[in-house]
Design a protein around this nucleic acid. Sequence first.
DNA 1: ATTATAAGACACCTTTTGGTGTCCTGTCAA
DNA 2: TTGACAGGACACCAAAAGGTGTCTTATAAT
Lengths: 109, 109
Amino acid sequence: MSENNQGRDVFDAIADPTRRRLIRLLAEAEEIPLHELTVQFPMGRTAVSKHLTILKEAGLVLDRKVGRETRFRLNAAPLQEIHDWTAYYTKFWRANMLRLQHLLEEEEE
Amino acid sequence: MSENNQGRDVFDAIADPTRRRLIRLLAEAEEIPLHELTVQFPMGRTAVSKHLTILKEAGLVLDRKVGRETRFRLNAAPLQEIHDWTAYYTKFWRANMLRLQHLLEEEEE
DNA sequence: ATTATAAGACACCTTTTGGTGTCCTGTCAA
DNA sequence: TTGACAGGACACCAAAAGGTGTCTTATAAT
């Protein structure tokens, strides 16, 4: 029981640049109403609202109604999955950096 | 000059589960030809090839022709961008964990 | 009481995505 | 030297994505 509403894939949710910017905006404030978010983007309210719905389905934002506005707040926890996924591959670019370093050292001789 | 061919967004490239599995498979071997990758998925060669093209455009895989086969290898470096992006948000789930921890401690009393 | 604002709910549209099948060309094996 | 195999290059298709505009209903402000 419980868990996020629609169970949207977090990787999918962060694939769109608009949604990543929404995440960033929400990270910089406690709570932001839809109309205030909308003015930050070159698109209509409906579009922004749809993006927020997708973020909500991925569990990345929460919303509550206050008066006539709907305020959104970030829930960054699901991003941990992304962080963990990439962590597995850090060894590869570390390996590459080492290889590059060796090459540079060889060239210096 | 140089840089990746088409400049596809890395976030976009890893959004698809098939492509994430391709990345994983390539991480576990040095080099894998297309037909060998294809048998791992419930879809045709053409589809897998398209996914690999997208990964290539994002700079995540390299390929070379050997005889009649095309062999693919992983280049994990671009994943660093994802890793860095998520790193910014670690403070949020750390904060949440702390809050949860406090709640649990309160309940124990 | 009336008007303006915030936003949900739709219907609608275009482009992109993720798949298919077919044909053609190299390359390796018999 | 004749098959069989690997895979590029298309053309094609259905569904999803990312927008739009309009209508309606709460709520707030005058």
